[in-house]
Computed example of a mutant assay.
Amino acid sequence: MITHTIPLDVATALWKLRGENGPYAYDDYETVHDEQVDTRRWVSVHRLIIRRTSDGTLWALPYELGLTEAQDCDLFVDDPVTVALVRAEQVTTTRYVTATQEPAAQVGRITDQVVMAYIAEHAESGIEDEFNEDGEWTTEEHRELKKRAFKWIGQHRGGGAL
């Protein structure tokens, strides 16, 4: 791990400048990103990513915040403050959010089983032998029944699009 130190007053000024409307610059550094990396019983552990403007390198500035109003903890552990060299890396993440509706692929979906059930009730002849190896209807009569089934099912679902 590559580290270097910055003066406590510079670290404190950068911490005060962090925020959502950055980047903010102070001395030879500018704020880039602020993140919480851990939580312990009495403190939350954060790191402020800063860029040294003279060479463009990124450094992680660790700090801690007390979790209660009466919690007494130092913002920084060291004086001067030790920062670690970091690099930006894009990472794909998966988030799980509460769904407000069914996925688009499922809304209004009519399966072949539903169509087959309709056709079985309305066809003059059986349909079990009327499919090719791809599961498609082989006769014009059954293809027409499938079209009518989609229309009928759509009308009985309130006329919604299929």
Rank of each mutant, 00 (worst) to 15 (best):
M1G: 15
I2Q: 12
I2L: 09
I6Y: 00
P7W: 00
D9A: 10
V10G: 01
A11S: 07
L14I: 08
W15T: 02
K16G: 10
L17H: 08
R18T: 02
R18N: 05
R18E: 09
G19P: 01
E20S: 11
N21C: 06
G22V: 03
A25H: 04
A25Y: 01
A25S: 14
Y26N: 08
D27F: 08
D27E: 13
D27H: 13
Y29L: 04
E30Q: 13
T31L: 03
T31M: 04
D34Y: 05
D34L: 09
E35A: 15
V37S: 14
V37A: 14
V37F: 15
D38F: 11
W42D: 15
V43G: 01
S44T: 13
L48G: 03
L48Q: 08
I49N: 06
I49F: 07
R52W: 00
R52M: 02
S54M: 03
T57L: 10
T57D: 10
W59R: 03
A60F: 05
L61Q: 10
Y63Q: 04
E64M: 09
L65N: 13
T68V: 05
A70Y: 10
D74V: 02
L75E: 08
F76N: 04
F76H: 05
F76L: 04
F76K: 02
V77E: 14
V77I: 10
D78T: 12
V81R: 01
T82C: 09
T82N: 09
V83H: 00
L85R: 15
V86A: 06
R87Q: 15
A88E: 15
E89T: 14
Q90P: 02
T92V: 13
T92Y: 07
T93W: 03
R95Q: 14
Y96F: 10
Y96G: 00
Y96S: 06
V97G: 02
V97C: 02
T98C: 06
A99V: 06
P103I: 05
A105I: 11
A105G: 03
V107D: 11
V107L: 11
R109T: 07
I110D: 01
I110F: 03
T111G: 13
D112L: 12
Q113H: 14
Q113D: 15
V115M: 05
M116W: 08
A117L: 07
A117Y: 01
I119L: 01
H122P: 02
G126K: 09
I127S: 01
I127P: 00
E128A: 14
D129P: 00
E130P: 00
E130Q: 15
F131L: 13
F131N: 05
N132P: 03
E133V: 10
E133T: 12
E136K: 13
T139I: 02
T139W: 01
R143D: 09
E144A: 15
K146P: 00
K147Y: 05
F150R: 10
F150Q: 04
K151I: 12
G154S: 12
H156K: 11
G159T: 02
G160C: 06
A161Y: 04
A161Q: 07
L162T: 10
L162I: 14
L162Y: 03
L162Q: 11
